[in-house]
Design a protein around this nucleic acid. Structure first.
Lengths: 376, 376
DNA sequence: ATCCCTAATGAAAGCGGTTACATAAGAGAA
DNA sequence: TTCTCTTATGTAACCGCTTTCATTAGGGAT
């Protein structure tokens, strides 16, 4: 037997001997003190403290089958939506006495599968955010360990959904009120539950208000994709765009800037998630997706299910709200000004008739609780 | 004894019985097959496969003292520097067969301490990124479990450092070449090792080139802080700023925009980390800190140390390089134009003499491998 | 044929807890 | 007083796997 790498910690046996009680008593002093005489508990805990004893989670897990760990599996930690989600989830798990494994699937279904397999024995349950896995395999994993899914609808599997439909509907109304007649939705691939939901809300509300709605689906919802689709976007005749998320919205803003168009004077942009929205310039009008809350909720659901296995499947829905900031304004009279070719395609072209708009009024400090982005 | 929540997996005993061998043989078939006759290994593995047996990590950990887990403790997952770092670390750990716990200390030393305590028994070692903890406590934890620190110098403790000094020196040279005579460094609190290192590089190089260098220390390195310090920044007479990280740099850009100043025409800005640099507009000139690489290196160091405990303390240094993009340009003739008060302080003031600069030439597609920022 | 050595396997004692079951000591109730 | 029922604690059997030590069977060497 290989000795543990460092000085081995005091065990329950040592504490028992020192306190003059049995192992069982020490164990109970920690896990079920109500079974013991108060004086005994006191005695045990104090000697434990004196010796620096801490119950060994691994041993406890082996014996009880409860690890007090959960795992959070997500497609990409570097995506701020997921970072925020993770932050919320980890904090909530910690609060409830659970430690969190992180699994980054790098957007691939197979890696997701492997992570789920590998971590299964070490955790009491999983939170699976925006899974890339097919339904069948998700169900297989769910059959082995409790599992909560975020942003995917699977009948019979616990899930938390972020409902941004009403937020997007409000966003469309805002644009209609500003006089926009043609708007566009820039989405992710059709496989994304969230993107589909948002697209539907935009189309329906737009139709109800008599707007013309164009839809563009980016190959992947990235900054680059948002930036690249701007030509296509302008061709639709739209004067405003709603993006599937803030990152794409920011990309669209960059693309517009490339063409010398100013936001919101020449074009309005709305994002979703409210995660990098306050750091753009102008600050982005967006639909708050309460990412952190979604993570925390999922953890709660999972842990509640653990203590009450018979509980019925609950499906909390988080409703996102429109937050109006600086990237939305009146529709430009006469449509979008004839923008030059993008700068990087024609760097030598003279800067023609570029109007600098009146400065958008940035919502002063009331930009909502901005996520802290500190540095090293 | 409470039964494990779900269907219990087949154990080593079952496999042994089915294969007609002893437990020990099954165990060895998995961990030290070279001790067994090839035919036996074959027989055991095939019946194991048939039964769907997978060795239980928890039991293995209890018995061997090796968990095959590590923990990554960092101040804030939502900070893109740390998300990137985490991504690199987790991927590397996975490659080497280790699972990763995530601990977010929310920038507080005490929580960091608790996380280290709580996770200690479940992991073979820690990666501690930019710790907020005091040296004494770090050493205490390091005495209990192997521990690698990122971006902090502690004699005798393994660490990986990201050396951005030469990158910042190059950045100063770039600015000097552009004719800037007064520059400023906007840093984090003095407690940050990285910020100190960068400040020194800027001051020394600036002095060598005959530039005047101002230093501003933000209370926290956040977007808001960067934005808020712009007044102070302009008062120094500087025509260019180097920020401790990209987030602060982005904040500075927002603050300059508030005042109607354009980058890089009126003012040059340089960041650090290269993590959100390609998503700003114009794309940010920055010093690449190879965040992901730092995370991966730290994991390697940790795991190598685990297999060879006697190995000498190694201190890999990752050298960051200057990446020139669109936020740096020639110093404005006659200094920074007299900017109006920030928009949000005087929203009614007419937009006076605002010049729209010639469009900065954005480095076309060669903006480097942009981190993927996808959405749900 | 005898001895020694090696290779392959098994038996069983942990790893550090939890918990079913047994036991002992009081507290009421009859 | 005797019996039953709590209440507080101890004993010991696991949890699933690893590993030491013992055992057995061949395979040369002498």
């Amino acid at each position: 037997m290989v000795k543990p790498p460092h000085t081995s910690a005091p065990t329950i046996r040592l504490v028992a001997r020192e306190a003059g009680v049995s192992q069982a008593t020490v164990s109970r002093a920690f896990s079920q003190p109500e079974l013991l005489a108060p004086a005994t508990v006191e005695k045990v805990l104090s000697t434990a403290k004196r010796l620096g004893y801490v119950p060994n989670q691994v041993a406890r897990a082996l014996s009880t089958g409860r690890t007090h760990n959960i795992a959070l599996i997500l497609p990409d930690v570097a995506n701020p939506f997921f970072s925020a989600l993770m932050r919320g989830a980890q904090a909530q798990a910690y609060k409830r006495g659970y430690a969190t494994f992180l699994g980054d699937s790098d957007e691939t279904a197979s890696l997701e599968d492997l992570l789920l397999d590998k971590l299964a024995v070490q955790v009491d349950g999983f939170v699976l955010a925006s899974p890339r896995l097919d339904e069948e395999r998700i169900r297989r994993h769910a059959g082995r360990r409790p599992l909560v899914v975020i942003n995917r609808e699977l009948e019979g599997i616990e899930r938390v959904l972020v409902d941004t439909a009403s937020g997007f509907a409000d966003a469309v109304k805002l644009l209609a009120g500003f006089g926009h007649r043609v708007i566009a939705y820039v989405g992710a691939p059709r496989s994304s539950w969230s993107s589909q939901q948002r697209a539907r809300a935009v189309c329906e509300t737009g139709a109800a208000l008599g707007l013309k709605v164009a839809q563009i689906d980016a190959a992947r919802p990235s900054h680059e994709a948002g930036r690249a689709c701007v030509d296509q976007l302008l061709n639709t005749g739209a004067t405003a765009a709603l993006a599937v998320d803030d990152v794409v919205a920011q990309g669209i803003m960059a693309g517009l800037a490339d063409r010398g168009l100013s936001v919101p004077h020449d074009f309005s942009v709305i994002g979703c998630d409210d995660i990098i929205a306050t750091t753009t310039y102008p600050p982005l009008t967006t639909v708050n997706a309460y990412c952190g809350l979604a993570g925390a909720k999922a953890v709660d659901l999972l842990l509640n299910g653990l203590s009450e296995p018979a509980a019925p499947v609950d499906t909390p829905v988080i409703v996102g709200e429109l937050i109006v900031r600086g990237t939305t304004g009146p529709a430009p009279q006469g449509g979008v000004p004839n923008a030059g070719a993008p700068a990087d395609r024609d760097p030598s072209s003279p800067t023609t008739s570029r109007r600098r708009p009146r400065r958008p009024k940035p919502e002063p400090q009331a930009a909502g609780p901005s996520s802290s982005r500190k540095s090293i």
